[in-house]
Design a protein around this nucleic acid. Structure first.
Lengths: 245, 245
DNA sequence: GCTTGCTCCTCACGCGGCGTGAGGTTGTAC
DNA sequence: GTACAACCTCACGCCGCGTGAGGAGCAAGC
């Protein structure tokens, strides 16, 4: 029984840790070898090795070195409570990871479905997605996704291409000073309303979220050419649609 | 259009970032404000803000600041490839998180089922579990778990209490020098075999894993009092069981 | 004895993404 | 003029080590 004390290298080899890690544990007081040679080499006894195994067990469960030190420090801890707390944290992290995967997967699917996308388009899409996640509830997002699926890729692209044209034509009329109650503004406003309805599906919650978003994020509308003046003009045209001719 | 340039504080407020974070992005060259006041205050232009939004989008997807800088640096990257790589990483992390949750949950269940457990028992159980995860395949672990469920807590405890007694009695006989072919060693060996069979369920894979574990981890057996000499004695007793009387 | 080659030792900096001061200047309001 | 907020630039701290640098201990072969 003379060879029970190990030097760092040996212990590192047996546990799969690095020598540096063992040095670190020594530094922070987590595992101090109970003996040293005359020349200062660390000697780990059987008790040290047992402690190290406990440390590694707790480490596998995701505890920080500080938590491990605290736990091993006083032996009167409630194991169940410790584990349950850790489990709760792990569950939260799991949920976050899952969300992240879903986000990435959604983006990847979009990218695969679309033509090779320019970097700019990609970043713009990303921004739109984060915006959506900010203003729409998860259920609303699911409904929107379902509607997109139902419409099909091509139809979506058509709509996305139509919007800028519609906005441009509306602006023309506004700048010409056309009365919003008359044609062709009535027709444009009707189409405008149709496109919005195609998006919301008539869901009042989604309508509400859409409105909130466009109010809170004016720069988004701005980039699409929907500045406040134009929107006011469109608003008047809509009102005229509802009013009897 | 005179108020489009923002100072750090304003930008921080609008994005939810900290001023320090923006300083950091400046330091590492990720987002350098394109203008400064005469006195050196940072002024973020609309373009800077747009870039920041891109940065935040990519950050939400779990990219590191360095990766983001690289991605935004050259505009010719393949969005799909970038996202797919990130997705792969995220999936791996998700799998790890899930495993961790399962481990923690298994331990929590054990702790809830058992009486209030001492810290030492807890750590010992942990060690046993990590050992098991090392030597048994996931399917084998599931089978073991199922068999435990079927046996019930109390039966398991009885067996766990019986083992040390059985080992002690076997050691007595060995030290008395009893012929392993005779009673009462035959009875003890028979019981020994029964207990092992109750554990393995006769599954040859599990039998194999059990053997591998006890060979690779002699200190585990040692702590239970099953030293090499005793095991050799048991082995002889087993052989006598199989041989005709 | 001396060298070779391995293991051991003690500093000490580095990573990522900032938090958190310290200590000083600028800008704005009363 | 004076308060107070917002800005500035260092610079250290976190966590769990990796990765050297520069030197001493230790067994084996010449």
């Amino acid at each position: 029984m003379q060879h029970t004390e190990l030097k760092v290298g040996e212990l590192a080899r047996r546990t799969g840790l690095s020598v540096r890690a063992l040095h670190h544990y020594d530094e922070i007081g987590l595992l101090k070898p109970s003996a040293h040679t005359a020349s200062g080499h660390r000697l780990y006894t059987a008790a040290d090795i047992a402690r190290l195994h406990h440390i590694l067990s707790l480490k596998q469960l995701g505890f920080s070195l500080e938590e491990i030190a605290g736990t091993l420090g006083r032996a009167d801890f409630s194991a169940l409570r410790v584990v349950e707390l850790r489990l709760q944290r792990a569950r939260e992290q799991l949920a976050e990871q899952r969300q992240l995967c879903e986000r990435l997967d959604a983006i990847a699917r979009q990218l695969r479905a679309a033509e090779p996308v320019s970097a700019d388009d990609f970043l713009q899409t990303l921004e739109a997605m984060t915006m959506f996640e900010k203003y729409y509830t998860p259920e609303q997002l699911k409904e929107l996704e379902a509607r997109r699926q139902a419409m099909g890729e091509d139809a979506i692209k058509e709509v996305e291409a139509e919007w800028p044209r519609l906005i441009a034509r509306m602006r023309e009329e506004m700048e010409k000073g056309t009365d919003p109650a008359t044609e062709p503004v009535r027709a444009l406003a009707t189409r405008w309303r149709e496109l919005i309805r195609a998006f919301t599906g008539g869901n009042p919650g989604i309508q509400q979220s859409l409105q909130t978003m466009s109010q809170q994020e004016p720069q988004l509308a701005q980039r699409q050419g929907r500045d406040p003046k134009l929107m006011e003009y469109v608003g008047r045209a809509m009102a005229c649609l509802d009013a009897p001719k």
